[in-house]
C-alpha cells in the first residue's frame, strides 16, 4: 500500500469546525489518517500542542483558524497569528521543511472548503515525504531472556 501521511488538524470549533463532521463523514479522500482536534478558539492552540504533534510523528500539522471578520474574539486571533508566523519561520530557519506546519486563517468555511483545504494539504505533505526532523524515535528495547 502506498504511504499515507498522518495529518493533525487543529481547528476552531466556532468558525472552522462547523463543517467538520460533514468533512469527515463525506467521502473525503484521506479521512482515516487525519486527526481533527477541535478547540473552542484558535487562540487556545499553543506552540506546545503543535510541537508535541510534530514530536509524536505527525507528518503534517494544519492550524485552521477562521477569518478575522467573523471571529468572536478577533483580537486574540490576531495576536495568535502574529505568534504563529514567527513559529513557522523559526521552524523553517532550523531546517524543518517548509509546509510541514501550515497556518490557515481563511474565512469561515462550510465543510466542503475545509475538506478541500485538508485534501490539498495532504497532497502537499505527501510530496514532502514522511517527517523525520524533530520526531522522537525511541531505540528499540532489547529484551533479555
Amino acid at each position: 500500500m502506498s504511504w499515507e501521511p498522518g495529518i493533525v488538524v487543529f481547528c476552531c470549533s466556532e468558525c472552522r469546525c462547523t463543517g467538520v463532521e460533514e468533512a469527515a463523514g463525506s467521502n473525503c479522500k484521506a479521512p482515516c489518517n487525519v486527526r481533527i482536534v477541535r478547540v473552542p478558539c484558535a487562540s487556545l492552540i499553543s506552540e506546545y500542542m503543535i510541537m508535541s504533534a510534530l514530536r509524536s510523528g505527525a507528518d503534517g500539522i494544519l492550524v485552521a483558524g477562521g477569518s478575522f471578520d467573523d471571529c468572536h474574539s478577533a483580537g486574540e486571533k490576531v495576536g495568535d497569528h502574529r505568534r504563529f508566523v514567527l513559529l513557522e519561520n523559526l521552524l523553517e530557519f532550523i531546517g524543518v521543511e517548509p509546509g510541514r506546519v501550515h497556518l490557515s486563517w481563511e474565512s469561515a468555511s462550510p465543510g466542503d472548503q475545509l475538506r478541500v483545504l485538508i485534501e490539498n494539504f495532504t497532497e502537499e505533505v505527501k510530496a514532502l515525504g514522511p517527517a523525520s526532523k524533530l520526531v522522537k524515535q525511541l531505540e528499540p528495547v532489547q529484551v533479555v531472556e
Partner: peptide
C-alpha cells in the same frame, strides 16, 4: 492588521488579504 495569508487552496486575490473592519 493587514497581512497576506498564504494558503494552499487557491482563493480569489481579494480573500487573501485579511483586513478586519
Amino acid at each position: 492588521v493587514e497581512f497576506i495569508v498564504a494558503d494552499l487552496a487557491p482563493l480569489p486575490a481579494a480573500a487573501r488579504i485579511v483586513q478586519p473592519s
